[in-house]
Design a protein around this nucleic acid. Structure first.
Length: 746
DNA sequence: TCAACTGCTCTTTTT
DNA sequence: GAGCAGTTGA
């Protein structure tokens, strides 16, 4: 099989250029994953590079897994020794190895968001700060940014720009000290620690560099400064650095990704680099591509890539203005049903995308009502679920009873009568003795009553808990992970605790069962690895592969999670000012540019059908607001748009143009020029005399009340009032300008 | 210690 | 509108 066979010239060039730094600017749908995997295969098969000398970095575990699978297929068994993983997983691996090499015995635990928050609250308590005024999330965000920029506490304190930052620097310092005390690294430390290690031990860096002959990085636009530094250090010896990305798809600045890495830094630091632009798009129709291009083109400071495609122009983009979110959802559901019936599309070929998760609810309602199967991407991930984390915390304790984060989490879960007061007392006492909380527990047992601030009654459950931990620690030495998990469940009576008779309780129990399945699979997959490796793997993974995922279902997801995916039909809902772009991003130009990229990412997910929707009125967070159409819609050339539908109930404050008013046009499949109502008409719209749009006998549909028949219609002062007999909801009187009412053509 | 209540906040999400 | 964290009262 020829690795280069199906590649276009640019892709081929990217695969074959084997030496020196390479910057690949890859547009959406340009087959960049393919380029990376084929390049790795090419290096191994044609250039005879040992897999051991290749390190490929991705951003998600999913991407890493997909890359490994593709390589397995491409190379058969010749992937032994190849490193393909996320930055974090790669760093964790290197760190363990390097620490061992240095002869240091310092195992570490990885702190996730929950552990971090608990720790920062501890810090606030210690420093006697009010967690209302100094919100843990905000502090953690600032600390994370500092770490991403490789600014330590000592450096941070020198550059504080406000009182808040000053407080933050104190929090940072103490937080970092506590992490060290607990032998814990948070996710940012996982990246930062290797960099610091290399600075202190050049020999360790040299060893690492010897190993890395080829370094490949995917989604380079998502790297932060530490990651950039790692790339530089890792690949510095031979400078065979291959980075692939698209500045137009950089949508993660809020988690400290710095798009300047791909835009500027790489070019500055590697003047000898080669640049290849992949402009051929294999995904979208000409129409969709043109529309997306005209949206992204308005961003400043970007390298324009004229995307080309061989696909046909395809159907025009459908723009739809709904009255409110429920009508918007109804339209989407109806259209999905229609595409399913007439468009030869299966449920799985369609996706609905939105800016915020809160928007999914209305869509779900509409889909449920019509019996359309759907799956929601996102929400609470498996390893973030309370019950899963609880059980994992017990496993962590069994592995390392000094794991303070785990101990705090489950000391009273399930309830065993150890209240907050007792816990505080225990922690304080442990601090005074300068031992871990677990050590303190053991002391309590050895010398009850003696100089101990905890009374006999409160001490009993503590002693029971200590005994439990001891038993688990002992068992961890001889049991497999699933056996240990069973022991945890049995000893804590977790099933009784979690299954409270409700449906949610059963669901939680199922998750625990699922976790047991994960451990069982782990044991079969890696029989030589123990509890420690399992816990690390789990800490670096956010989700579990669902086995019985229903294959044919409409996908509901945020624009962020849509990156990297594609669907024949895409609906983007809520294209309104304040939502997309989001109100929090409208002020700052840089953030606004990112919103635009987000819109671009969403649009370019579509292969054939693209629907852009906005609602005139939207209820969000409990209050209803009138929103203008998104400014991004204005950038889509009107000749690419069809199927506008503007109905009579537009409010009086925003009179509809005569052309669109009352005109009910079915979505067309050929481009149609129309003056969208969200664009001001060239000439002021003539005052349209209001007439009667409904008459007795008309069949109508209302987004809430369903279908009905008009009984009567009369003109009021400046509106029209219709009386409708609804099939399910009875007789209602409605004002045409406000009611989400549409006429069903006979 | 726990259940009921109150008030606050509500962008995006991976590791 | 709803979910969550923190507070209050028993």
């Amino acid at each position: 099989m020829d690795i280069l066979a199906d590649l276009n010239p640019s892709q081929r060039e990217a695969v074959q250029a084997i030496e020196g730094p390479l910057l690949i600017l890859a547009g959406p749908g340009s087959g960049k994953t393919r380029v990376i995997t084929h390049r790795i295969a090419y290096l191994i098969r044609e250039v005879q590079v040992s897999p051991y000398h290749i390190v490929a970095v991705t951003f998600t575990n999913k991407a890493a897994r997909e890359m490994r699978e593709r390589l397995e297929r491409l190379l058969g068994g010749r992937t032994q020794g190849l490193t393909v993983g996320t930055f974090h997983a790669t760093c964790a691996r290197f760190l363990r190895r390097d620490i061992e090499h240095l002869g240091r015995d310092r195992s570490f635990v990885i702190y996730d968001a929950d552990d971090q928050e608990a720790l920062i609250k501890q810090v606030l308590k210690d420093l006697q700060l009010n967690d209302k005024q100094y919100r843990p999330g905000a502090l953690l965000g600032r600390i994370s940014r500092a770490k991403s920029e490789m600014v330590g506490p000592a450096e941070f304190v020198k550059h504080t720009e406000s009182y808040w930052e000053e407080v933050c620097s104190r929090v940072y310092e103490r937080y970092q000290k506590l992490l060290l005390d607990r032998n814990a690294l948070d996710f940012d430390d996982l990246l930062l620690t290797p960099v610091q290690l290399y600075q202190q031990h050049p020999d360790v860096l040299a060893r690492t560099q010897d190993r890395i002959v080829h370094l490949l990085v995917d989604e380079f636009q998502d790297t932060n400064l530490v990651q950039y530094e790692l790339v530089k250090l890792w690949g510095d010896q031979l400078r065979n650095i291959f980075v692939v990305g698209d500045e137009d798809q950089g949508i993660y600045s809020w988690r400290n990704a710095d798009i300047a890495n791909i835009q500027r830094r790489f070019r500055q630091d590697y003047p000898e680099r080669r640049e290849i632009i992949l402009t051929r798009n294999y995904r979208s129709t000409r129409t969709i591509l043109d529309a997306a291009q005209s949206v992204i083109a308005r961003n400043p400071d970007r390298t324009d890539k004229q995307l080309v495609t061989e696909k046909v122009a395809g159907p025009a983009i459908t723009l739809y203005e709904a009255y409110d979110e429920s009508e918007e959802s109804d339209y989407v559901a109806l259209e999905i049903a229609r595409l399913y019936r007439e468009g030869a599309l299966n449920w799985g070929d369609m996706a609905v995308m939105y800016r915020t998760n809160a928007q999914s609810r209305a869509i779900e309602d509409a889909l449920v009502r019509r019996g359309i199967p759907y799956k929601l991407v996102g929400g609470t991930r498996f390893y973030q679920r309370r019950e899963v984390k609880d059980v994992l915390a017990y496993l962590r304790l069994a592995h390392n009873p000094a794991d303070a984060g785990a101990l705090e989490r489950v000391i009273n879960v399930p309830r065993r009568g150890i209240g907050q007061r007792t816990q505080d007392e225990l922690v304080r006492w442990a601090r005074r003795l300068d031992v871990s909380t677990y050590e303190a527990l053991k002391k309590l047992r050895a010398a009850p009553g003696e100089d101990v601030p905890i009374s006999g009654r409160a001490a009993r459950p503590l002693l029971d808990f200590a005994r439990l931990v001891d038993e688990l620690v002992e068992a961890a030495g001889r049991l497999t992970v699933p056996e240990l998990l069973d022991l945890v469940l049995e000893r804590t009576a977790y099933s009784e605790y979690i299954r409270d008779g409700t449906e949610e309780g059963e669901g939680r129990w199922e998750n625990v069962q699922e976790l047991r399945t994960v451990t069982a699979e782990y044991v079969t997959r890696s029989p030589d690895e123990g509890l420690s490796a399992f816990l690390e793997e789990v800490a670096l993974v956010s989700d579990v592969d669902s086995l019985e995922e229903q294959p044919q279902a409409v996908t509901l997801l945020t624009l962020h999670t849509a990156k990297g995916l594609e669907f024949p039909a895409v609906f983007i809902v809520g294209m309104e000012e304040g939502l997309l772009p989001h109100s929090r991003s409208i002020e700052a130009p840089a953030q606004l540019a990112e919103e635009r990229r987000l819109c671009y990412v969403g649009m370019t997910r579509a292969k054939d059908h693209l629907y852009l929707l906005h609602a005139f009125r939207r209820t969000l967070y409990g209050n209803s607001r009138v929103n203008d159409a998104s400014r991004f819609l204005k950038d889509v050339p009107t000749q690419l748009i069809a199927g506008r539908q503007v109905r009579g109930e537009r409010p009086l404050s925003r009179p509809a143009s005569s052309e669109s008013r009352g005109a009910w046009r079915a979505p067309a499949t050929t481009p149609v020029r129309a003056t969208p109502a969200w664009q001001e008409p060239a000439a002021p719209a003539p005052a349209t005399p209001r007439g009667i749009t409904f008459k007795a006998g008309d069949k109508v549909r209302h987004s809430k009340f369903g279908e009905g028949t008009v009984i009567n219609s009369e003109v009021t002062r400046d509106d029209e009032q219709v009386t409708v007999a609804f099939v399910g909801a009875g007789v209602k009187k409605l004002l045409v300008s406000y009611a989400p009412l549409e006429k069903i053509p006979a």
